[in-house]
Design a protein around this nucleic acid. Sequence first.
DNA 1: TAGATTGTTAATCGATTAACAATC
DNA 2: TAGATTGTTAATCGATTAACAATC
Lengths: 216, 216
Amino acid sequence: MTGTQHDIPAGVVERLPVYLGALIQLRHEGRTTVSSARLGELTGVNPAQIRRDLTHFGSFGKRGVGYDIALLVDSIQRILGADHVHRLALVGAGNLGSAIAGYDGLRQHGFYVTAVFDNDPQKVGKRIGDVIVRHVDELPQVVADQNIRIAVLAVPPEAAQAAADLVCSAGVRIILNYTPALVHVPEGVTLHNTDPVLELLHTLYYLSRADGSERV
Amino acid sequence: MTGTQHDIPAGVVERLPVYLGALIQLRHEGRTTVSSARLGELTGVNPAQIRRDLTHFGSFGKRGVGYDIALLVDSIQRILGADHVHRLALVGAGNLGSAIAGYDGLRQHGFYVTAVFDNDPQKVGKRIGDVIVRHVDELPQVVADQNIRIAVLAVPPEAAQAAADLVCSAGVRIILNYTPALVHVPEGVTLHNTDPVLELLHTLYYLSRADGSERV
DNA sequence: TAGATTGTTAATCGATTAACAATC
DNA sequence: TAGATTGTTAATCGATTAACAATC
């Protein structure tokens, strides 16, 4: 789904944010160092794999001691490109959009929702999070002005493709699609789908196997 | 993170819901058959892999023709255990909770939010989706009465572990964690974390590589 | 029949893990 | 020094892909 960049395996890149989440939690608990063994417990990843993953980017630990949490947090953030601020455009000002705009975790990682759009005149002008909802017609101009690279789609599924087309032609490079619709994006745009239902279905498989799959 | 059930590779189980999503969209468009090549285009999965994935569960296609969409949808739903109704307990009646409860895609796959809980007395008694918000104290009783197996956590991160403990001891078998907190669950409970920020961070990596990673 | 596409094998590729020497 | 834990190699394991015979 994403063009293979350089030679870092995709699995490694997927796990880095998981490590980061655990490290931030550890730092929050006041810890200063952590071993790969402990990090493995917290994240469910094999300790050897954690060490191997990290060596793709350098050497961050001290033998006999472990990893300095602050250092590793900084390093991973730099690797991911999360060491500076990113502005997000949010398309769709419904319940989901409101939840996303109000989500503190975004700001903690340097993601700021600086523009919200909707095509419902009822919603235009209202405040969501820290910003006023604008009409979707203004999107190209605003995205260009703010040099926004990331868009989040929280619109009804029927509107997803149109919204994707719009943000793509406005110059957005990453789309987070929160609708169940399968949208197509041009080469060079990274699309990430997060349909909660797909994840539920996936997990469901294991439940059906685990017990007698009672029919309801 | 999940106990290895039988001999189906985890990757296969992860992709089935993706196929299902595409198939449902195709059915919605009025199509009746699809080739692995077309399904591969839609989902970004290699056609050979789609065919190989499906053979784990049987033989669903017709050589020279392709797959009957209706049949394949039914089959995948049955494989996943999504061919009957599942009740969900939702913990947290904020914006995110409201978005989840109001999400149509859930019902389309047989997931019904039949109980919503919050510990804020302000929210108890209000309606979300089709149900009245109850105090979290009632959770054990309600989950037991309704024989609920799946819980969705949409609470503040500080409250996540307590909420997880509560639903686990009430007998829930699958937890969908929408908070950034790393929660621990007992053996036998499947935990699925979906922190939107982690996904953003992951995607961000590729953006930083793609262009000159302008500092803002 | 000719064309298309599956089901399946066999080859490749990459990821995971165990093990251990290096070293804090 | 002794104990701990990393960084890294080497072995294993599994997933991906190409190719093609089977067959609709």
